[in-house]
């Protein structure tokens, strides 16, 4: 039984069709890496899954929650799937703790005490419990991204979308974020990540999706995709001849 069902999804920006019929089913606990050149539609696909972009055709559902263009359906969907962004997007006017508490109290109506306890647990989980009262601009990029992960986790999603979450980080900060993601994967979280970290994809992911010109060009376990690419496009992308 699939957790995320993506069926014949199409998406156009004006006359430009960026997704040309995507089919992808993700089982619970799977970790999927989406790779491909920029402009191949990988980020757009991810953003469609939680309704940041509306699809032009096809259907997407996450654990039974359909992607439909109204506030109620979008909220139901977004409570099931969290998202982490390349630019962290923490709320700069709130403390680290406030960032993790806000959506719990506002969206889920959790009472303040329980929300704070949850926030502290999630921040401990990403190793930043001691930064509870700091402001985002006092943290390094890697720390900010870990707070963003804690913020998403505090909503108890059943899947997480990661949109190039290490691409804006200095090289020495990438590892601390990836190790948090690795732990999440080990704990059985369903993850869909657009990434350029090929080594990480090979080590951690259960399947790799190679996107090219708005289509799923190749898909398979990392061992196959990386060691035995079938198409010239993927060979070129991976730099093997």
């Amino acid at each position: 039984m699939s957790l995320i069902e993506i069926t014949e999804v199409r998406k156009s920006f004006g006359p430009n069709e960026v997704l040309k019929g995507i089919n992808l089913d993700v089982a619970p606990g799977e970790v999927i890496a989406i790779i491909g050149k920029s402009g191949s539609g990988k980020s757009t696909l991810l953003r469609c899954i939680n309704g940041l972009e509306m699809i032009s055709g096809g259907s997407i559902s996450v654990a039974g929650a359909q992607l439909l263009d109204d506030q109620l359906h979008l909220k139901t969907l977004r409570l099931k799937v969290g998202m982490i962004f390349q630019q962290f997007n923490l709320f700069p006017h709130l403390t680290v703790g406030g960032n993790v508490i806000l959506s719990q109290t506002v969206v889920k109506k959790t009472d303040a005490k329980a929300a704070e306890a949850m926030a502290r647990r999630m921040l401990d989980r990403v190793g930043l419990g001691h930064k509870f009262d700091a402001y985002p601009d006092e943290l390094s990029g890697g720390q900010q991204q870990r707070v963003a992960i804690a913020r998403a986790l505090a909503m108890e999603p059943i899947a997480l979308l990661c949109d190039e979450i290490t691409s804006a980080l200095d090289p020495e900060l990438v590892a601390e974020v990836l190790s948090v993601v690795r732990e999440l994967a080990a704990e059985g979280m369903t993850l869909l990540m657009v990434t350029h970290e090929m080594k990480f994809a090979r080590d951690v992911c259960s399947r790799v999706v190679f996107m090219h010109q708005g289509r799923v060009h190749e898909i398979g376990p990392p061992g196959e995709v990386f060691s035995n690419p079938q198409t010239p496009e993927l060979k070129q992308f991976l730099g093997v001849h």
Binding site: L52, L74, G82, N89, L90, S103, A152
Partner: peptide, 11 residues
């Protein structure tokens, strides 16, 4: 990104 982050948290 502030709109997107808060939207993706269900607000």
């Amino acid at each position: 990104g502030q709109w997107e982050a808060s939207a993706s948290l269900g607000m």
